[in-house]
Nucleic acid binder design. Structure first.
Lengths: 340, 340
DNA sequence: TGGAGTTACTGAACCGGTTCAGGTACTACG
DNA sequence: CGTAGTACCTGAACCGGTTCAGTAACTCCA
């Protein structure tokens, strides 16, 4: 089973390499008869063109890269990223692109080095990046490297960005959440956000403030870092000293912090939802399984991943940068905000 | 910023392409002085060799593939695979290999097609496979395709397999679990396994039977399918009719089924651990967060992934197939098997 | 002193595709 | 009938590395 090549096929059929290539790629320049003969032979021999040879001559690797930069401990527990990944991969597969995955710690230098190397080696045709940071260095870096990219979840842009991106309706989401809490009778809520270095958090905070003001709701802000433990700490800080003006509801920036918060409430002897209601900005199995189950905003990560990947494919295809806002989120009301 | 090539470097330095190549790859044939000049220039120009050109001439793609074949819904919720992935990726990165990821549904034909294509296109140098099935067609297929592979979690081999694999100590794990239950006073336990098409389940069942017999414990067997819902169904089937001979403890094959089981127990009005104790063959955040928290066997997926990846790297390097048994597991005792 | 051995280097072939610039042969049209 | 146009096909260059065979200079030792 010596490896066949295009030259081999050509020899067997008594035609030139060029004709075989044209036939395989559906390009004009060969008769229908010849094309059929080539395709039939390729199938019969179970032959596929060498991806590296193709990549070299086309100057296209056929792969896109993704750097998952997160605490290794967190990575497995963050269901959002897995859903996103699944959506991205299926969309890429449909566009006949491979996904190259790199997992690194929360080290910006390493992420940067990865992009530099990928660009230099021309190992990927483009990359997907997420977690839009304040003064995010990545767009400029990738621009300089000439590596096409899509920023998933761009936020806080005054004007639409000059690059491809998906955008989230953080203000609308904030309104959904606050409206729900208001309807449930809450007049003083705490908002435990992720780190403010993430631009989306700024936007969420603004949104929560604005919606709350409209309803005459008081907001207490607390900055955490998406980890379970930080959700716990937030609750201890917010409710540890049972001050009279404690909030009656807490909005957590993701599902893990919600879980941490729930644990802390229990430890403090506070009941959920009777004493404190809880609502999560991210849904996941954790929210469903917790007791009480946690009301959550479902962002449908798989769908989001699909949208982002399609954006990247179209960018690679046409070279045209586009911005698409992500599909509507959905509030899944569960026990943690039940009416008493 | 026209893309530099090896020819460009050679021209700038006034030497031949061959010398540049030798210098870059640490091969003999160039003086130390020349090597330094080449390396310095490469660094100065931020130049990296084209991966596709290198892949073509070396006949090595520099990537390994992994097919995640699972219900897309399940994929995000199965923390085991994410941990595994993280371990694999970090080990591969250390060996300067890239990870190519493909996610497909539970469709064996599609998995097979993926391997055939990867082999034909020589897109990956090897693959990692897991979930050893009964009459698993993949080892033979990959052998035929000439695609090196490591089977993660091989089980039920009479003799050590002829290919690279990691093996799990299912019998020892079963003993750990049963011993613990016996110590806690249980004399009749139910074992909710994953599908018997998975070879590891056969081995686990045998192990549980054997250890139980030694302790004079009765075992009820139930075959489920790893999904949350199937854990719930198992409990309903086992405890729905409150027969006198109901078990006092349930062993679940993974964390998701444990969660489903916990929900079902609650619905049936059975208390855990008072009426029925629960123990999970897989640990995860779910087990920690559940109430009661669930005693679980931690398999340390990240470490396992690392071992599997290292095995593949050494296979690609030396061509020598090896079998390594996975590191010891650890029983994390939590509330679901508390002493009353 | 002369031949073997070593070191440093080079030209050219090669990996396996894609693509461009022709070259036939055949059809169409004025 | 001459020529332009088209359909089909080919040889050769090219993508950017690696590697082999060969050459020149220099060392070493009998």
């Amino acid at each position: 089973m010596a490896k066949e090549t295009i030259a081999g096929l050509a020899r067997r059929l008594g035609i030139s390499k060029a004709s075989v290539s044209y036939a395989l790629n559906g390009q004009p320049g060969v008769s229908e008869l010849t094309r059929r003969r080539v395709l039939d032979l390729a199938e019969e021999l179970e032959w596929y063109p060498s991806s590296s040879a193709r990549a070299l001559s086309r100057s296209r690797s056929g792969a896109v890269g993704m750097v998952l930069s997160a605490d290794p401990l967190l990575i497995g527990t963050e269901p959002y990223y897995m859903g996103l990944l699944a959506g991205i991969e299926t969309a890429l597969a449909e566009g006949d692109m491979a996904l190259m995955l790199r997992m690194i710690g929360k080290d910006p230098a390493q992420e940067r080095a990865t992009y530099e190397r990928w660009a230099g080696e021309r190992k990927v045709d483009g990359v997907l990046i997420f977690d839009h940071l304040h003064d995010d260095p990545r767009p400029a870096l990738l621009e300089r490297l000439g590596l096409p990219f899509v920023l998933h979840g761009a936020t806080g842009m005054e004007a639409p960005p000059a690059f491809s991106a998906t955008t989230t309706e953080n203000a609308a989401d904030a309104a959904t959440i606050v409206d729900h809490l208001h309807e449930r009778g809450h007049r003083r809520v705490a908002h435990v956000s992720g780190p403010l270095t993430h631009r989306q958090e700024e936007e969420r905070i603004r949104g929560v403030r604005k919606s709350s003001a409209r309803h005459g709701i008081d907001v207490v802000q607390y900055e955490a870092n998406y980890a379970l433990e930080s959700g716990r700490e937030a609750v201890v800080a917010l409710f540890g000293t049972r001050s009279a003006e404690s909030a009656t509801a807490v909005v957590f920036g993701n599902d893990l912090m919600s879980m941490g918060g729930l644990l802390a409430l229990r430890e403090l002897g506070l009941r959920c939802p009777e004493d404190v209601a809880v609502i999560s900005w991210d849904d996941s199995l954790h929210c469903q399984l917790a007791s009480p189950s946690v009301t959550a905003l479902s962002r449908n990560p798989t769908m989001q991943g699909r949208v982002a990947a399609e954006l990247l494919l179209s960018l690679l295809d046409t070279g045209e940068a586009r911005v698409r806002s992500l599909p509507r989120t959905e509030l899944l009301v569960r026990d943690s905000t039940a009416i008493l």
